[in-house]
Amino acid sequence: MPSEPPDPPERRKAVHRPVLLDEVVEWLAPREGSTLVDGTAGAGGHTSALARRVGETGRVIGFDRDPAMLELARAATEGLPVDLVHAPYSEMREGLAGLGIAAGTVDGVVLDLGLSSDQLAWRDRGFSFGSDGPLDMRFDPTSGLPTAAELLAEMSAEDLANAIYEYGEERFSRRIARRIVETRDARPLETTGQLAELVRRCIPGKLRHGPIDPATRVFQALRILVNDELGHLDKILAELPGILAPGGRAAIISFHSLEDRRVKWAFRNDDRWTVLTRKPVTATAEETAVNPRARSAKLRVAERWSNQEPIPTPTSPRP
């Protein structure tokens, strides 16, 4: 049965709830006249909250790879001191320069590395197997990058297995990769439903019915692969200290260990940083009750080293 047609972009409404919103605002401590960057603007939740606190002389710049998400952010930030840039956060330095903002002058940066609930809800984007749709998975459909379906059609079983294991931490990666190659020889894998069902059949019966759908890890791996997510993260982690002003802060939210380890190591192993969160900040029970997605979120915050008086930290940071 063909998948249902996607909703036109003009009918799309934001459903995403920004995670750890109060904590991000508290740790970045925006002031009148601050220059802040949201490297993952999404639907504009963090962006708009920060923009309301920088006053008429302040400025918030929001980056996003997804043009559809930028349309939502534009609606959420209307009338606020916000500039939106269609670019990945790994191009932050270049994007800021294009707006006349010099490196070493930014007061704070937030990155929410999670996939937006809006992107998951749009079946034509292929991020979710909750409803059948094309296997796309590109954050930027205009980028010219290969889709997930194209990668599945071209990669060797060995390369697929390695990617699924490395990016999805899936122990049945070789079995899944072999089945993908066998199946595509008979017919192309083109929809999220096809791939999800193939993965489920590769998992032993007693493990198929746990709290997490067996297809989840494979979809995560393919999304990371399609969008080179870890490559973009490594690049921005290396450049952030040079983007921030002395005393400026970086607040980074991750949702799985592959990202969180990189953030932790970057903050701890670069002497330009002072780590402010000894342990990652996590969501309160109240937040997870209304936004279950926040349950796996981890916020780490570091400050660009400065010999000046630091910005006050939150009085009672949660571990």
Score class of each variant (00 low, 15 high):
233 L>D: 08
179 R>Y: 04
92 M>R: 10
318 R>N: 02
82 V>Q: 06
48 S>Q: 11
59 R>I: 03
222 L>W: 09
194 Q>H: 07
253 I>Y: 08
179 R>A: 15
303 E>R: 14
310 P>K: 03
33 G>C: 07
80 L>R: 04
296 S>T: 14
273 W>D: 10
302 A>Q: 10
179 R>T: 12
100 G>R: 03
34 S>T: 00
179 R>W: 04
30 P>N: 07
138 R>F: 12
199 V>A: 08
172 F>A: 02
244 L>N: 09
306 S>I: 05
35 T>V: 15
3 S>M: 01
46 H>D: 11
148 A>T: 13
208 R>V: 02
52 R>N: 03
70 L>W: 12
210 G>F: 08
124 D>M: 00
127 F>M: 03
138 R>T: 11
120 L>C: 05
122 W>C: 04
75 A>Y: 01
275 V>D: 04
239 E>I: 01
294 A>H: 08
153 A>C: 05
255 F>Q: 01
242 G>D: 15
247 G>S: 09
111 L>M: 13
204 P>I: 06
51 A>C: 05
259 E>W: 06
163 A>T: 13
145 L>V: 07
187 R>N: 00
131 S>T: 14
70 L>Y: 12
302 A>D: 07
186 A>M: 05
213 D>F: 00
220 Q>N: 04
181 V>K: 10
226 V>Q: 02
202 C>G: 10
212 I>N: 00
127 F>P: 04
164 I>K: 02
13 K>E: 14
111 L>P: 13
271 D>Q: 13
284 T>K: 04
20 L>Q: 05
90 S>P: 06
2 P>S: 12
118 D>L: 14
60 V>H: 07
77 T>D: 04
49 A>E: 13
309 E>C: 00
47 T>D: 09
222 L>F: 11
176 I>W: 08
55 G>S: 05
58 G>S: 07
69 M>Q: 15
229 E>G: 06
210 G>W: 08
44 G>N: 11
103 A>P: 13
226 V>H: 03
63 F>R: 10
51 A>E: 04
59 R>M: 07
271 D>H: 14
252 I>Y: 05
90 S>R: 15
99 L>H: 12
